[in-house]
């Protein structure tokens, strides 16, 4: 009596504890191991070590499990070259995926840059804005197709403050802060007002010289013969 293998769409609900009926021994072993790692996933080499199965058996079984839609491969941001597997019912943890700013194991720089530009624009328009103001303005603009939480906007704004594009300060409630309640944290644009001041040491060749530790007054590398100085001063004779 032959029994048709169950189609993936007919398999029991993922939350159900019942074992999939048609798994071979190695498949069952691997599936249980992968499932036990929940949202952290497991690396193929670790699977081989823990189950003691042969290389080709593991590869074949993983393929079958994937075909049965029981497991999925995920990219681990820490080791993009390693193959990690996870049971389909789990979403990769922050440690594995890198968090909400990562897509397929890579930092979603395009999305981040769009958000950065939007935040700076709204802060510049309002002169002084709280995080709620910036978030509401971004949501109201309907530029983004995906939803963005206030926490995400706050992370972007804090990074902008680290870049000295904007500054974080406490409202005094008067003057330019009149729209913000006194004592509340708000943000102000620094563009045009103050750019990152060029440090004096970094403006001379010695400040950024890779050979400074070998430089002595009368040594092989010395200020008298320094090529960086001559280049800086355009002394070519």
């Amino acid at each position: 009596m032959s029994r048709l293998p169950p189609l993936p769409q007919k398999r029991p609900h993922p939350d159900s504890q019942a074992q999939p009926p048609s798994l071979s021994e190695p498949e069952r072993k691997l599936y249980e191991l992968i499932k036990s790692r929940t949202n952290m996933g497991i690396w193929t080499a670790d699977m081989k070590k823990e189950t003691g199965l042969q290389n080709n058996v593991v590869t074949k079984s993983l393929k079958l499990l994937q075909n049965k839609n029981l497991i999925k491969d995920v990219v681990n941001v820490h080791n993009k070259g390693r193959k990690y597997y996870m049971a389909v019912e789990f979403e990769p943890s922050k440690e594995v995926s890198g968090g909400s700013w990562y897509a397929d194991g890579n930092l979603d720089t395009d999305f981040i840059n769009i958000l950065r530009r939007m935040c700076v624009k709204h802060i510049e328009e309002r002169k002084v804005a709280t995080i709620e103001d910036v978030w509401k303005a971004i949501v109201a603009s309907r530029v983004l197709k995906v939803e963005c939480s206030m926490q995400q906007i706050l992370e972007i704004v804090r990074a902008l403050a680290l870049d000295k594009e904007i500054e974080e300060l406490k409202s005094t409630g008067v003057g330019e802060f009149s729209n913000v309640q006194a004592g509340k944290i708000c943000y102000r644009s620094l563009r045009g007002n103050q750019v990152a001041r060029a440090g004096y040491l970094s403006t001379i060749p010695c400040g950024v010289c890779p050979r400074i530790s070998e430089c002595t007054p009368d040594g092989v590398i010395s200020p008298k013969t320094c090529v960086y100085y001559n280049k800086w001063l355009k002394l070519d004779f």
Partner: peptide
Amino acid sequence: DEVESLVLTRYGKEAYRIFRL
């Protein structure tokens, strides 16, 4: 400002952000 600016020139924008943090 002085030290951060040195880090910015020597190691770049991302290092500057990390150092300031």
